[in-house]
Design a binder for these strands. Sequence first.
DNA 1: TAAACTGGTATACTCCAGTATACTGGTAAC
DNA 2: GTTACCAGTATACTGGAGTATACCAGTTTA
Lengths: 111, 111
Amino acid sequence: MERDQAEELRALQDTLYFIGGKWRVPVINSLCNGNRRFREIERSIPGITTRMLSKELKDMEMNKLVTRMVYNDTPVLVEYEPTPYCRTFGKIIQEMINWGRDHRKKVIQKQ
Amino acid sequence: MERDQAEELRALQDTLYFIGGKWRVPVINSLCNGNRRFREIERSIPGITTRMLSKELKDMEMNKLVTRMVYNDTPVLVEYEPTPYCRTFGKIIQEMINWGRDHRKKVIQKQ
DNA sequence: TAAACTGGTATACTCCAGTATACTGGTAAC
DNA sequence: GTTACCAGTATACTGGAGTATACCAGTTTA
């Protein structure tokens, strides 16, 4: 049986669309690494602005990648919990980390 | 030994940067599927324009992801050959295809 | 009591990735 | 002789992703 290139391309493009911008994957990664609070996530991703993180988390909440939990202690405590669905990105992210690592090695080697 | 989150993030961001825009991954995928000629690649990726494909292939040539071969028959024949390095993306792409497929299933299921 | 933390929002701006469209010069098929 | 293929280039335009910066109200630390 022949592989359906069109179907594969669709699946691929769905994933790329879902990943979207510059910050989605790093945010997922941060959550999967155990970071939960807003400033904690922010600090774990150098370069991201509050605005972008805020947008990203809202978007991810709508897409059921993250659950926003508010605890009414004083001061109020907010935690972002990655959903099981969020964690299904794990393999892709791991492959990306591996590739990036090898790439860096290769670049250093060349110099 | 503790995992180095900063190092992992760097590797991840390197990969994301390398992937760059909307078309890099689909083009790599097309090449890895055996498409070689300009119009052939173009047709295999619905929605891409000649301009974007041209830019992408040039960029990929500079980054040693693709080799441009010109055969001086008449009419001139041009072929784009993916380098071994290009093929190292295979795992990431496969994981992306898998994820996209599962995602689609999940979405259809919900309706 | 001033500084620094929390979890964000508001406004303004910029730049370039991606789109749209037309065109070229040569070859080959109908 | 006109339509269609090949492998692209040229020009013009735009939307929105991402940046920069300031601000808020409350709390805790020095």
